[in-house]
Amino acid sequence: MQIPDIQTLDRGLSAALQHKIDQKTKPLGALGRLEGLALQLGLIQQRLDPVLRQPVMMVFAADHGIVAAGVSPYPQAVTMQMVLNFLQGGAAINVFARQVGMDIRVVDAGVNHDFAPHPMLLSHKVAMGTQNMLQAPAMSEAECEKAINIGRQLAHAEIAKGSNVLAFGEMGIGNTTAAAALMAALCQLPAQACVGRGTGLDDAGLQRKVDVVEQVLQHHASHLHSPLSALQHVGGLEIAMMAGAMLGAAQKQAVILVDGFICTAAMLVASRIVPAVLDYAVFTHCSGEQGHRRLLQALQAEPLLDIGLRLGEGTGAALAYPLLQAAANFMNEMASFESAGVDGKSA
C-alpha cells in the first residue's frame, strides 16, 4: 500500500493563536477545553480565524463473519436493516446530523445485502462482509488495501466539494468484536481489557465474546505485529475503509471528528500507519463501551464529552460538533480587551 503523505502540524502559528485566545474578554483559560480546540482548529487550517465549512458525516457499514460465533445478541440482518433506516432518515444519527446541519453519506463498505440506489448511499462494497476470523483472515490483503484506498478517495472527494470537517460513524453487527481484537493486538492488551457488551450482551455473552477474541488473537498471532496485517486478519471492511478516509482527510488538512469505540479503533490503525493523522483528530466522546476509555488513554486522547453514549453511528461526533462551532465562533466574534475597552489582567 502506498503510505499517504500527511504533514505534521506547523506550530509556527501557535504563539499568535494563543495570544489571540488570551486577549479575549475573559480570564486566562476560562473557556477551558474550547481554548485548546480553537488552537487545534487554527493550527490545522493555519489561520487565526478558523472556519468550519460543509461538515459531512460519513457512516461506514459492513457485516462481520464473526457473528456466527455468537458475539452479538442481534442477527447479522440488523446491519442491512439499520442502513435502510439511515436512508429513510429515521436513525439517531439522522436526527442529530439534521440538528447540527451535517450532510450524511452512508457508505456500503461490505454489507451482506444488495441495496437499491439511493441519493444518500455510496456503494463501494468490497465483499459481502468479512470471513469468520476464528477460521480465516477477516479479509484478503487485496480487499483490505482496496477498502483503505476507497476510503481515502471518498474523503478527498468530500473535501474537493468544499467540506473541511469530516465526521465518522459506523454500523456493523459484530464490529465491537473486530475493534476489540484490533485494540488488543495493536496495544498489546489482554482481550478482557478490550471487550465490552456491544449491543447489550449479558454476563455469559460477554464472557463468550472475551473467549472468542482470545481465540481469534491466538489463531492469528503471527500476523498481528503490523497495523495493516492486523487490520486484514482481525478487522472489518468498514473499519478499513474508515481508516483510509481518516488518512485521506488528514492528507487534505481537514478536521476529523472521531466517534466511539469502533471509530477510535479505526483511528488507532490509521495512526499506526501514519502517526501525524492524530494532529487532525478531535475525539468527540468517551463511550460506555468498556474498552473505549482504555483505548483513548493509549492514544493520549482527551474526549470532549463523556455522557454514557454507546450507540455508534457517529452520534457522539454529531453531538460534539457544536463545541467546534463555539471554538471557531469565539475566536472570530468575541471581543478582545483592546477592542472592547476592557482592562486586562495587569502583569
Rank of each mutant, 00 (worst) to 15 (best):
H292R: 10
I150P: 00
D259G: 11
I6Y: 07
F330C: 04
K252N: 05
H233E: 12
M120H: 04
A179G: 03
Q2M: 13
L37V: 09
V269E: 05
L189R: 08
F86P: 00
P50D: 08
P117M: 03
S336W: 05
A276N: 06
C144G: 13
Q218E: 15
T79A: 09
S336N: 05
Q192R: 13
G90E: 08
L43I: 01
A180N: 03
A157W: 03
V126Q: 12
A160Q: 15
Q251C: 06
V95Y: 09
Y321M: 06
E158C: 14
G101M: 13
L201K: 06
V234P: 03
G129L: 14
D202R: 07
C194V: 04
Q188W: 00
H124G: 14
A340R: 00
V107L: 11
M183K: 03
L41I: 09
C286N: 15
Q251F: 02
A142N: 07
A179I: 07
P322A: 14
L52G: 00
N164M: 10
G196K: 12
Q207W: 03
P73D: 11
R11A: 14
L134D: 09
V255T: 14
L278D: 01
F337Q: 10
G312D: 03
A38T: 00
L87E: 00
Q76L: 12
N164D: 10
A116H: 05
L13H: 08
L299P: 01
L166G: 00
K345A: 15
Q232P: 00
S229Y: 11
G314E: 11
Q251P: 00
T264M: 08
A38N: 07
A317N: 02
K20T: 13
P73Y: 12
L41N: 06
M171L: 12
G70Y: 07
V106P: 10
Q253V: 01
A62T: 02
V71D: 11
M267L: 15
Q188I: 01
N94F: 13
Q88I: 00
A191F: 05
C144V: 04
R53V: 11
S229C: 13
D203V: 09
D279G: 15
G291C: 12
L39C: 05
E289Q: 04
V258T: 10
A155K: 05
V107D: 13
P322N: 07
A265Q: 03
A127M: 02
V83M: 05
Y280A: 03
V100K: 02
C286F: 05
H118F: 11
H225S: 15
Q253A: 15
G174V: 07
L41H: 00
N164G: 10
L13G: 07
G236E: 10
L43P: 02
Q188L: 11
Q218P: 01
A30Y: 14
R294A: 13
Q215C: 06
M120A: 15
G308I: 11
V107W: 08
L278S: 12
A298M: 10
G341E: 02
V100T: 05
V106I: 15
L257Y: 03
R272Y: 04
I173G: 10
L311Q: 06
V274I: 09
A318L: 03
L39K: 06
D259M: 09
F96Q: 08
L52D: 01
A245M: 07
G312A: 12
V212N: 11
L84G: 04
A62I: 11
